[in-house]
Amino acid sequence: PAQLKAVQHHLRTAQEHEKRDPVVAYYCRLYAMQTGMKLDSKTPECRKFLVKLMDQLESMKTELSDDDSITQEVVGNAHIENYALKMFLYADNEDRAGRFHKNMIKSFYTASLLLDVLSVFGELSEENIQHRKYARWKAAYIHNCLKSGETPE
């Protein structure tokens, strides 16, 4: 639903990680669920959507019940943070080496989405807030440069 547009990219990231890293998929959905409930849990279309998302989360949690990243919040936090920083560092290395391409733009953007997801564990650190801001800005900036044929600085 349009009211939940703010979490559509997090849900897409969840889908993309379904096989590759189900823990990432789970926490992206948990973030979307929590945020979605704050945005709109009253209108029928949003309620229907959120109930379906909750069903999915509960079944994922059952499937992943042996994974410490799901059963222990602190392990989950570390998993998502490490993954986000890995994405960030890959994109940052490409950027510093002057290699600008779609994949690195996506890595910057995914890192920023996963830093949003970290907020399910509590308030973000100042460092993570800065990384998120930088990653989001870099993704937009390089994307625009490539689109207009400019070389990013």
Partner: peptide, 27 residues
Amino acid sequence: TGSVGASVASAEQDELSQRLARLRDQM
């Protein structure tokens, strides 16, 4: 009927909040 609709919506919302709390509880 408006108030019935509103209370159904509120009950469903509560159920969702409870399910979310249970999901987070076991973490």
